[in-house]
Simulated assay, not measured.
Amino acid sequence: MQSKVAALTMVREDLFFLRAWLRHYGEVLGRENCYIVNHGRGEAVADLAAGCNIIGIPGDPHRNFDMKRWRLLNNLVMGLRSYYDHVVVGDVDELVVVDPASGKSLLEYLWDAPLRRVLTPLGLEVIHRIDIEPEAVGARILGPRRHVRLAPHYSKPCVVSVGTKIARGGHFTQHGKLHAPDDLYLFHLKFCDFPEYVGAMNRRNAVTEEIGAGVKETAIGRHWFAEARGEDRAVFKGFAALETVEGFDMAPYRQHMRDTFGPRGDTGFYEFDRPDYGLQFKLPERFSGLF
């Protein structure tokens, strides 16, 4: 029987994150159900993603990069929904994970999930505590990295089984009901490894420099610009100052999402409050080795 779940992303040169994406979704869903937009038709991306469905597109930098990217991803999601029950869509450094305590893989979890809705996992940012964790992650990220920062900005409505429009950046949809399952997480990997962060930021800064326009003149995330970067090592040293919460009870934060969910002005999209909690947690051992 064919999988009822597909995963979709877009990538350009971010091979470290692509390897993690492929380990996770390729192993859980099968590479034949993974769809990768190869921005710039990079040979290394195509080689790594062998066995996946690869869509090559031109890679010329453009000041409306994010707008164009999400227009493409939106339409691909809607098309794939004709063949799959659920489509998981997001950036290559974002992985949707089911709590191992559920006893299910992501495929098994979504196989049993109701249709005609959008699922919003709780966002957790994997952080490299350079003061106490090793520099290298090895074959798997979780294990060498066990610390996460609560990140409502990455609680994204990214598992789609209904016709809806996703906003640029993937943070909002036009689906008017929030479904935030207790066992579902989105792990954001941007800060999971200090050397890889430096390399990724150098690549992004080079793109925006080539475009030659500022934040206000582009549809590109502010974090791509050198002026918003800060000093890299200071950013990572700052993680140690985040308040550490004992245990791993995420129920209050999901409940806040539910309590504050509503229309995003008159845009047609829906949102919930996304406070800056300034909190970190240590992942339970059961998450180690997931990706």
Rank of each mutant, 00 (worst) to 15 (best):
L18F: 14
Y35Q: 13
R23W: 12
L18Y: 10
E27P: 13
E43C: 02
A44F: 05
G30T: 07
H39Y: 13
N33F: 11
I36V: 04
E43G: 00
R31H: 09
G42W: 01
A20N: 04
R31D: 04
N33I: 11
V11P: 02
Y35C: 05
R19I: 01
R23K: 06
A20V: 15
W21F: 05
L18D: 07
N33C: 10
D14C: 03
N38V: 09
W21Y: 05
H24L: 15
F17W: 14
G30E: 10
H24N: 08
F17Y: 07
D14M: 14
N33A: 15
L29K: 11
R31S: 12
H24S: 15
A44Q: 05
R23S: 07
F16E: 01
I36S: 00
L22C: 02
G40H: 00
A20Y: 09
H39A: 08
H39E: 06
D47I: 04
C34P: 07
G26N: 11
D14Y: 13
Y25H: 02
V45C: 03
Y25K: 08
V11G: 06
D14E: 11
C34R: 13
V28T: 15
E27C: 12
R41S: 08
I36A: 02
V37S: 09
L18E: 08
V45K: 03
A20G: 12
L22Q: 04
H39K: 09
R19P: 09
Y35V: 11
R31M: 09
A46M: 01
G42L: 09
L18H: 13
L22G: 05
F17M: 14
L15F: 12
E13W: 01
V45L: 03
V37N: 00
D14S: 14
A46Y: 00
I36N: 00
G40S: 00
G26L: 12
I36W: 00
V28F: 06
G26I: 13
L22P: 09
N33Q: 07
A46L: 00
H24Y: 08
L15W: 09
L22M: 06
V11I: 08
A20T: 08
L29V: 05
V45F: 01
E27R: 15
I36T: 01
N33W: 13
E32V: 14
E32H: 12
C34H: 15
F17A: 11
D47C: 07
E13H: 06
Y25D: 03
N33V: 04
L29P: 14
I36L: 01
E13I: 00
R31Y: 08
E43W: 00
E13N: 13
F16Q: 02
G26S: 13
N38W: 01
F16N: 09
N33E: 04
G40V: 02
F17S: 08
A20Q: 15
R23D: 06
E43P: 02
G30K: 01
E43N: 02
Y35G: 06
L29F: 14
L18S: 14
F17E: 09
H39S: 04
V28S: 10
A46R: 02
